[in-house]
Simulated scan of single mutants.
Amino acid sequence: MALKLTGTVALITGASSGIGAATARRLAEDGAAVVLVARRKDRLEDLAAEIENAGGTALAVEADITDRLQAEAAVQQAVERFGRLDTLVNNAGLMLLGPVVGADTEEWDRMIAVNVQGLLHTTHAALPHLLQAAEQGPRQVADIVNISSIAGRVAWSGYGVYNLTKFGVNGFTESLRQEVTRRHVRVGVLEPGGVATELGSHNKAEVRDAMIDPFYESTEVLAPQDIADGVAYMVTRPRHASVGELWIMPTDQA
């Protein structure tokens, strides 16, 4: 019996760890050929081998999506290898927290580059192929899932520019959804709460001590697989059903 995504191709950014890696595994289990995009080539190759050994199909593509040309080349490699692109999961993200007053503005630039510009680069490059896939078999529908955050719904002190990027992702997602939904490219945003990933590890020690570690020590956070399950749910709906927003939270996160 064919799996839900048999004959389709999914590209996942930030696929070298955490939510991206879990999503790649899950979509491969559902039958998609998965294109793994990130900067850490060794991790991508290990994950691709793991997926292939489990009977799936995977392609590792080393790319820095903050560079428009590299993002475009990653999409092109996917299409050249598999002949199509049905699903884009914009997962790559960076969370650098702290006060606006006295902030290291280089951290702001890095977040905006990954969370906003990288997402825009991959989406722009992928859209022609997604629109084409939506006109063809096997499913006659294509999907974009943008991984945002609860920080795209609620603003907190110390999250200023991270909030800005995720509120922006939510707004862009809804605008694009309205633009292409009648052409059967479904566009949705998935907003996780706390997840056990490397996301917080890139912060300065004082930020981890004050804002991140206490939360993770007091909260039963989500696993990356929980978010991967949400992505799989969104992209395996029948052609006539579109999930525009999915909010997944730890049960005990206030």
Rank of each mutant, 00 (worst) to 15 (best):
Q70P: 03
A63V: 12
Q77P: 10
A49M: 04
D86K: 02
A48G: 03
N90W: 03
N91K: 03
A78L: 04
G55L: 08
Q77T: 05
E72K: 01
L44Q: 05
R43K: 14
L85R: 09
E80I: 12
D86M: 06
E80D: 14
D46F: 04
G83I: 01
E106H: 14
G98K: 11
E72W: 02
A49G: 09
N90D: 11
A71P: 10
R84N: 04
D67V: 15
L69P: 04
A103C: 14
V75I: 11
P99Q: 05
A103E: 08
N53H: 15
D64C: 14
E62N: 10
N53C: 01
E80C: 09
L94P: 06
R43D: 13
E52I: 09
R81Q: 06
R68I: 06
L59R: 06
G83S: 13
V61H: 01
N53W: 02
A74L: 04
L85G: 02
D46N: 00
N91A: 06
A71L: 09
I65W: 01
E72H: 03
A49S: 08
L44G: 08
L97S: 07
G98Y: 04
L47W: 00
R84E: 00
L59E: 08
N53D: 15
A49C: 08
E50Q: 07
T87L: 01
L88A: 06
A78F: 05
G102M: 15
L85Q: 08
V101W: 13
E45M: 12
E50M: 06
M95K: 02
L96W: 05
D46P: 02
A74C: 10
T105K: 15
L97P: 10
E50R: 00
N53A: 15
V101F: 14
L69C: 08
A73I: 00
E106V: 10
L59F: 10
A60Y: 01
A58V: 02
G98P: 06
R43N: 14
A92S: 14
G56S: 07
E80Y: 07
E50H: 06
G93S: 10
V79N: 08
T57S: 11
D46K: 09
E106I: 11
A74H: 09
E52D: 12
I51S: 00
G56L: 04
N91M: 12
L44N: 09
G93N: 03
